[in-house]
Write a protein that binds this DNA or RNA. Sequence first.
DNA 1: CCATTTATACTCTCCTTGAGCATAAGATGG
DNA 2: CCATCTTATGCTCAAGGAGAGTATAAATGG
Lengths: 318, 318
Amino acid sequence: MARSPQKPSAPASGNAVTADLVAVLVAVTDGSPKIVTIAGGSALPSGPFEFTHRSLQTALRAWVEAQTGHPLGYVEQLYTFADRGRSGDAKSPHSVSISYLGLTREDRVGEGFEAHWSGWYDYFPWEDHRAGAPACLAKVIAPKLKSWAKAASSPTLQRERWQRCTITFGLDDRDWNEELVLQRYELLWEASLIPEAGRAHNRDAPAVPGKPMTADHRRILATGIARLRAKIKYRPVVFELMPAEFTLLQLQRSVEALAGRLVHKQNFRRLIEQQELVEETGAMAADTVGRPAKLFRFRHAVLAERAVAGTKLPLSRT
Amino acid sequence: MARSPQKPSAPASGNAVTADLVAVLVAVTDGSPKIVTIAGGSALPSGPFEFTHRSLQTALRAWVEAQTGHPLGYVEQLYTFADRGRSGDAKSPHSVSISYLGLTREDRVGEGFEAHWSGWYDYFPWEDHRAGAPACLAKVIAPKLKSWAKAASSPTLQRERWQRCTITFGLDDRDWNEELVLQRYELLWEASLIPEAGRAHNRDAPAVPGKPMTADHRRILATGIARLRAKIKYRPVVFELMPAEFTLLQLQRSVEALAGRLVHKQNFRRLIEQQELVEETGAMAADTVGRPAKLFRFRHAVLAERAVAGTKLPLSRT
DNA sequence: CCATTTATACTCTCCTTGAGCATAAGATGG
DNA sequence: CCATCTTATGCTCAAGGAGAGTATAAATGG
């Protein structure tokens, strides 16, 4: 509105910033979702963005591949944050952090790198509902949220706070919605139950189980998990996380690991097969207990279509 | 992985950039979706990001409000692009453009500003399917895409190209998917049918109908439209675009305007009412043709819940 | 051979969704 | 006043999909 269209990005003095890339690199190894971490699991891999690349995404790929020695499969931008001098120095340069979600396989990471894998539920214990609602939800989180809600100034506000809690955490017999990862994290933050918040407002509620991370990295991770949980339901991205051949149960376990909830086995197979996403390899799985399962591979021909047109995955409610 | 977690955003030399904000500001006025443009409709409003604000979003709000004199309703980040010196000078400072989607009402823009409103279908004539598939699709776009597909080097590639075209544009009796706005734009770009691409590979296919924009602004707009079309189906964001009181038909027309396709009237009402998103004001619409309609308003109490838990909107297939 | 574990094939019911029919309540023109 | 047009609004119906359960098959380890 005020700017001239002739020079839409003419450099304005004084708004130079530093651009950082932060990556949420996900893999699933026998039923547990993992992410690449550095510094003993306390931070996500991040690095400065150099303008030697054509785009942000190619920069990210190049940088990740240089670190892990293996190519990334699916890559997707998550969110861009602005941080005023994180080091506390108000005059320090400001930075913009551009976060990405990337999918790989654990075995792809080369040896001799600082990076290693951490289970993502270490950071979000309340997000894993595969064996039912985690104990910490009812025992720790719900009571602390309740007292936070009660600490609001008016009865109306109290009710609103508690309603938000019940919706996002599935309390009071509400359904658990596995996609609200970020909303849950932000609610906990608001209630001062997250160490990263660094506020001591609420003395009887200092922190909830779950490993903290540097700066806003856990928030970025929450964004990534939320995005992935939403995406697997309508885009065939699980593929990027699977080995070349797999059984339908392995596929199901991977989906369940990501979604943090169980799936009705028969319905899962029905959906997978009717969408013609996979085909039999002819071989059977070895070294299994029980009746051996057929091995499948993804039909890459269909992938192109589904990548744009969409897929479906069933996630049961109970 | 290589970086020390102690200083996750320590300023690296040589990666300083300029940060710009670009906004897709949407309103709907009697059935046409509009966006704020500058420079005679050839650019989206954009401005430098100053670090005087706590976050990118507050910066955007402040800046938009300063320009239009009115507050923004819903705001959502779209995508972050990196551009190496757009002016063509390889040594010019690089910039990062952070784009946002914002919802308002047309009447909210103050007088005396450079900004004005443009219909968004001016830029994407092929996206409006309310009166059936636009003529330009079959007459201009499909043939040009077909010859682009045929220009591929191998028969396999030719088939793949054409399959992409049929999927994204709903050709060959496929269903039209209104959410693939960005994919369609990128396909046209790839086929050199977009003037902004600035490539003359394809001599018999220079440009398709639709007003161009500066730099990658039309791509950003496509991103915004796609996001909004997807969002109205599961989040009650249409609200931000409606006046305080409205009839159900007006609401339906707004949804149709955004989605670019028609909705079954009775089913639309069924869904809206069963979700209890609206309530009667008691008054009736004046100055109408036909039987007068009840006026409704949004139930803000429900909004909080739906904002997180989701809504549904029907978009018929025929 | 039996218990256990997993694979795989069907079935059943409920709910949603798309779509159509019918009627009501106004305005307008003869 | 009536015919007709336009929009509003109520109701029904059929097809498909989603969730959940039953039954049977094929392996393993005692």
